[in-house]
Write a protein that binds this DNA or RNA. Structure first.
Lengths: 197, 197
DNA sequence: ACTACAATCCTAACACTGTAAAGATAGTCT
DNA sequence: AGACTATCTTTACAGTGTTAGGATTGTAGT
């Protein structure tokens, strides 16, 4: 039975779980959150569908696991954003949107799409979202009176989240230089809009 | 065969199509976009599943129809926003978010969740989204140089869309007076944030 | 009014899905 | 070696969206 040459060693198959997650992630980005299917995942790994139940409690658990994995990478990339330590917010925003654009389906999954029932309320996923959010707040506390922080953080997160989703959905025709447009939009979070209020 | 007392008159059943749409919409808000099921819809109307195919080409077509219906109501409520004609943008933003909060699942459906394949690319739905967007742009043109309008419009839309989704997902604990927080956040679109750029 | 017709609805069936139960197969430990 | 446990498989069940073909009803034509 040499169905694969990866040598990761392990038990029977050559540690499944991760193979399932890898296949799931490929499928996710190939065909979107709604097309995540347990049988298709197993098919790609070359294994029978129910065998997945030795490693995951359900398809939702696989999706939740992907979401967690996504949040981990997300946090890494946000913290690695250039001059993040310097106190500038825009570079973090750009990294945020870069991640979403590089992993569109994963990003949508992380924010609830394709998760049916249980894992939509998943404590793990929700906690991870909140942790990312707390980082933004911490950055703002250095520069704003405490009572303005919540609204300011929500403002920044809404703007970035919304822009990311609109771009992912192909709803904004960014043309050739998307990053220029992104920078332009994010910069408005500093200056504001004339007579918008 | 008196399975219902609604007298809407019509053909055989007493115009299905709309009954299906009504049931679909109830189901949608009750159990979310992912739980939209043709068989369940038919069940609620008291009719056999395949009969829906005389009125809709597929389940996706039902979902797309709901989305269209949603956009229509959406546009109405946005235009009815107080002092919209006066040129203020914030009231429109509040109406935007009010709609999303009143019809959370429908709002998500309108922006792509739960639509598999075809209708995600649906021209009708996409056109409706664009039309709503053009209205925002038109409002901005009166107050900004032309070359700043696209970024400004995208800025406003991203902020509002993102805030709406975060609130819908229960990701922001708005507490008792959500509208106060909403107003506070939207107001920041006018003033901007110190040293955010 | 009676007939032809077209629209509407139904039952039966297909290919698919997620999941449960029970049996085969390999690796591990004493 | 033998017992045991973890892993994977076949089989089966209830559910889904969708298609094909037959029954039923309302509409139009003469």
């Amino acid at each position: 039975m040499d169905e694969q040459d990866h040598p990761p060693a392990g038990y029977h198959h050559g540690n499944l779980r991760q193979a399932l997650l890898a296949a799931a992630r490929e499928l996710l980005e190939e065909r979107g959150p709604g097309a995540l299917g347990l049988r298709e995942i197993a098919r790609r790994v070359g294994v029978s569908a129910p065998s997945a139940y030795h490693h995951f409690a359900s398809l939702d658990a696989i999706a939740a696991s992907l979401a967690e994995q996504g949040f981990t990478e997300f946090a890494e990339q946000l913290e690695a954003a250039p001059t993040n330590a310097g106190g500038m917010l825009a570079p973090t925003g750009e990294a945020y949107i870069a991640f979403a654009r590089a992993n569109p389906a994963l990003y949508r999954l992380m924010f609830g799409e394709g998760l049916r029932g249980a894992s939509r309320e998943s404590k793990a996923v929700r906690a991870l979202r909140q942790r990312a959010y707390e980082k933004v707040k911490a950055g703002l506390r250095k520069r704003l009176p405490a009572d303005e922080v919540p609204a300011a953080a929500l403002f920044l997160w809404s703007l970035t989240h919304g822009l990311a989703l609109l771009m992912i959905d192909g709803q904004v025709d960014a043309g050739a230089d998307a990053s220029a447009l992104i920078r332009q939009v994010l910069k408005l979070s500093g200056t504001g809009l004339p007579s918008a209020g």
